[in-house]
Write a protein that binds this DNA or RNA. Structure first.
Length: 261
DNA sequence: ATGGTAGTCGCACTA
């Protein structure tokens, strides 16, 4: 059966409930993975999503920061989460699909400004998080999909200027290397780049640009990966750049992949 | 080299 998976860093699910409803109405992904919902579980506005048909929810939330949610119109079982770096942050949640596929929704730490793990504890946290992911997924088995805001743009054509971002957190060689190690450990494939192998591709544009679209200084921070057999091969992928231009937008655009699982 | 914007909770922090 066709299965469309979407990932979107929403930057407050309460402030942008209307944008989530619009995405569900206009693009109807079977499963929507949200990050930075910035809400405790009991304050997520679920009623409107359920009314449209997205009745199944697996989520973790906290007040003010982080928070990940999986909204689905097909049944899901809560598959738990890992407490990465033992901080109690709401940065990961997993769900089991009816066919047995395991779906992960991640919000990897952004890592602060200074790309030095000694001077900047937030960057050290990001690197440690990636190391734990690599160790964890070394034991991965069976079909799995991994989505989320990974806060790393790994390829040269995932950023507006490879040269100018080499020392900017999100594109430094040490992060890219560790993200690549996570992929290798788990046997993950970058589903979006399998289908869109050529050209610049971004999913995030800073709020600080005067005109984000004209300057187009984007980065591809949001990803959809898959592991396992041919049943996990996607047949289409796209990034909804237009959503970055919606009213009071998130600084991230939704990323979609269509599977046939 | 700098500052630019956004969200949440408070009067600072994270992105």
């Amino acid at each position: 059966m066709p299965l469309t998976v979407c990932t979107w860093n929403i930057n407050s699910i309460r402030l942008r409930e209307g944008l989530v409803l619009r995405l569900l109405r206009e693009h109807a992904p079977d499963i929507l993975c949200l990050q930075e919902i910035k809400s405790p579980l009991d304050k997520i506005p679920l009623a409107g999503f359920a009314e449209l048909g997205w009745r199944h929810v697996v989520a973790r939330g906290e007040k003010g920061y982080n928070g990940v949610a999986i909204l689905s119109r097909i049944p899901l079982a809560d598959a738990g989460h890992e407490d990465w770096c033992a901080r109690g942050d709401s940065r990961h949640v997993a769900a089991r699909l009816p066919d047995g596929t395991l779906l992960h929704n991640f919000y990897i730490p952004a890592g602060g400004d200074e790309p030095d793990p000694v001077a900047n504890p937030k960057f050290a946290h990001k690197l440690a998080f990636l190391d734990e992911m690599a160790a964890h997924f070394a034991a991965a088995e069976g079909p799995q999909i991994l989505t989320g805001d990974l806060n790393i743009a790994p390829r040269e054509d995932d950023v507006w200027s490879h040269r100018q971002l080499l020392n900017v957190v999100s594109h430094t060689p040490v992060e890219v290397e560790k993200l690549t190690a996570v992929m290798r450990a788990g046997g993950w494939r970058d589903v979006v780049r399998e289908l869109i192998p050529q050209g610049k591709l971004y999913s995030w544009w800073s709020y600080r640009a005067r005109d984000w679209s004209a300057s187009d200084r984007g980065r591809r921070l949001d990803h959809i990966w898959a592991r396992g057999g041919p049943e996990t091969r996607a047949r289409a992928a796209r990034i909804l750049r237009e959503a970055r231009g919606w009213e009071r937008p998130s600084d991230h655009a939704p990323v979609l992949a269509e599977f046939d699982i």
